[in-house]
Design a protein around this nucleic acid. Sequence first.
DNA 1: CCATTAAATGACTACGTAGTCAAAAATAAA
DNA 2: TTTATTTTTGACTACGTAGTCATTTAATGG
Lengths: 343, 343
Amino acid sequence: MSSDELFEKIYTSEDVAREAGVSQSTVSRVFRSDTNVSEKKKKRVLEVAKRLNYRPNAHARSLITRKTKIIGIVMRDIRNPFYSAVLEIFYDRLSARGYNIVFIKSENEEIQEKEIMQLLEYNVEGVIVTDALLSNAAAERFKRNGIVVILFNRYTEDAENSAVFCDNYLAAKQIADYLVEMGHKSFAFISGPPNTSITIDRLKGFQEVLKQRNVHELIIASGNYTYESGFKSAQELMVDHRDIDCLFCGNDIIALGAMDAIRVIGLKIPEDVSVIGFDNIRMGAWPSYSLTTWEQPLEEMMDSTVDILFQEINHRTTTHKTIMMKGHLVVRTSVKSKKTVLH
Amino acid sequence: MSSDELFEKIYTSEDVAREAGVSQSTVSRVFRSDTNVSEKKKKRVLEVAKRLNYRPNAHARSLITRKTKIIGIVMRDIRNPFYSAVLEIFYDRLSARGYNIVFIKSENEEIQEKEIMQLLEYNVEGVIVTDALLSNAAAERFKRNGIVVILFNRYTEDAENSAVFCDNYLAAKQIADYLVEMGHKSFAFISGPPNTSITIDRLKGFQEVLKQRNVHELIIASGNYTYESGFKSAQELMVDHRDIDCLFCGNDIIALGAMDAIRVIGLKIPEDVSVIGFDNIRMGAWPSYSLTTWEQPLEEMMDSTVDILFQEINHRTTTHKTIMMKGHLVVRTSVKSKKTVLH
DNA sequence: CCATTAAATGACTACGTAGTCAAAAATAAA
DNA sequence: TTTATTTTTGACTACGTAGTCATTTAATGG
């Protein structure tokens, strides 16, 4: 027994045309919102289409128009709340422009062949790379196929892609300034993977200011951008270096892990150790943490990203933009002021 | 000036065929891994393909095979860590089977027309609905188009879809038993949206056991499955009902919010109030919370879901399965034992 | 070496739509 | 009414692939 009978036929524009007594062209026109259709026929077509449950086939359309209305989003750690938020907001923005999202989870740090294949085969119009590295070879592959690539929250020195990110260097400098101002003496930095632009810039800015302000020792522990990594690093750090009074964490989720580790040891935040994060994820505001952190202007960054994305898709520009945003410090209670307050 | 020159031509199977001195059919065979191709020509085709950077066009393929290798995942609150995890795991499972994921964020509780359209137009082979409601009308739409729908972590009484979920009723009963055993007297339940199967079953099981054990009052606050909602509900609850000594939360993220609210008020967990959650998200294990909760066998549930999904896609079965899994209690420190311990 | 069978190959068509172009219909102008 | 102009319409083709079928080539058996 053929089981096809169990399902209704999936009707095509031709079926609708026949039923409505018009040509396939006219049906196509109606669904492209082409104005050159008489009200009468338009109405008839829509009626029939509704009755037959007709929907244009996106693949056939893509084939002929060479537009897929699909954007690929490459992400590594969707469980990082920062990136959950990023995915959600990108979805809203792209959806509002009539685009669909193919979600690609990058298995390793660098985008793999398999992932590139997927995106190429589906002919995505653009790719937003957030959480993963993009090798020059991969960037080249996309470019050769006319696929726009935008880096979000990261950049590569030499790759010729547009990128939108927070000025991590400047932010780290301001954070360092703030911490020194607050009277801290002994600093540690728990970083993410050492080979990303984010990590490099944050470390660089932080170190520069410390040096400039005559703090010559900075203890560095690098791991990855997870709670577990932050927990473990902080634990080791605090055991080996009892005198640390200030911990700059590569991002908020690391900071939360670090705070828990510090408290488990029996130390108090911020009395014994100050902790500062980066990103301003929602959880940082929870009373259990009340994390002082740096807020990235997430929505603005994403708006810019989407703007540039469509600019490049539509005008096929070859000049790329690098947009660096500022952000600002969000002061809560995880950093202690050791200075005497003067009235 | 035409800007097309800026990009390499996107080659087709025909280009490859010409260049390799074979027919388009042969190129197609090579890329379908059809065995009926001589090693010699296969090698030649692959060489040329690599040189031209050729990739088969997924849309053309979909058009002719009527297989898209795309699964839609509908989710409402990706920021809920439970669902972030769900998305990640589903990605791994589906990806392993060569399928791609179109991510759909449901704007409202119920899947909207717009979202259905998107999935239909892209001819997804199946849809996994996790976090959103699926009206009968919507289910019907999918079914008519031969699209398999599986409900994950929920079900509807009458809809004819397969569903995989945790036995919430039984779990809630065991939770209630446990809490009563531990000596609690005054119970409250902070629920999610009251119209989902999850909420209904958890409440039902909880209430039944309480009644059975002669606890006749249960204070109920309903909100949604977010930290903020849990925080607010707990705050109101604890102010209005000072005597509550035990709080059953609809899920873990609500529980975390509730715990923070309780602590902000100045009460201690579990000394003053016990809190229990549901899901066993990672954050519950963090030392700041150490939440006692019910673990859903997430991976097994998702394995089942994917199994059923492909079973229905491949064999086009019309009989639907409902799989209910058990799960188990994870005891941490957010519930106090008020009973005297006897040795 | 020829007959038979199996493997490899290419010509051709279908998939469902968009869009071009020319013809037809409707409208305006004379 | 006739002619010029604009709007609507349908026939037709292209998009890039999979797969059918007939043909050619290679392999096998006697």
